[in-house]
Write a protein that binds this DNA or RNA. Structure first.
Lengths: 66, 66
DNA sequence: GCCATATGTAAAGGTCGCTTTACAAAACGA
DNA sequence: TCGTTTTGTAAAGCGACCTTTACATATGGC
């Protein structure tokens, strides 16, 4: 699962800590998501989409094989 | 997190086992999702949305407080 | 009544998502 | 150069997600 979190965060000149605060998760979680270590839960994906004002499908892209 | 999985499944006259086969998950997983015991992972949410031809936001609705 | 199908649930087990604490390294401004 | 901010990473712990096996109940057709 690919995502555009880092790109959307940098557009706003936010640090990972800033984004984490807006999402109410830890900074390590934001870092892990940006680096692709794991996918967010569905509720967190909704929070991210709402924060950036985009549909989930425009932020996250599933791998070819799913 | 609310979802319309049961409604969309019944529109197609599918059993939970039928849907599970299409999604390549266990029947118990489909049952748990329909009964709201837990939310799907983000990749599984994408599979469900693609199968039903709808955006994720039209199948899953986050709780008020998220 | 019988048999097959569909649904609900439980228990045990593995991996994932997220936390807190902590440390290291990179980047930046004054 | 020094102090601050930012990013990356690790480890331990906990609950969520999903599996397999198994059993119970309900429904419907014959």
């Amino acid at each position: 699962m690919n995502n555009r979190i880092q790109e959307l965060r940098q557009l706003r000149n936010w640090s990972q800590a800033d984004l984490a605060a807006h999402l109410q998760v830890s900074r390590q979680t934001v870092n892990a998501l940006e680096r692709g270590r794991y996918d967010p839960s569905l509720p967190l994906a909704f929070s991210i989409a709402r924060l950036f004002g985009l549909p989930i499908e425009q932020i996250f892209q599933p791998d070819q094989d799913r």
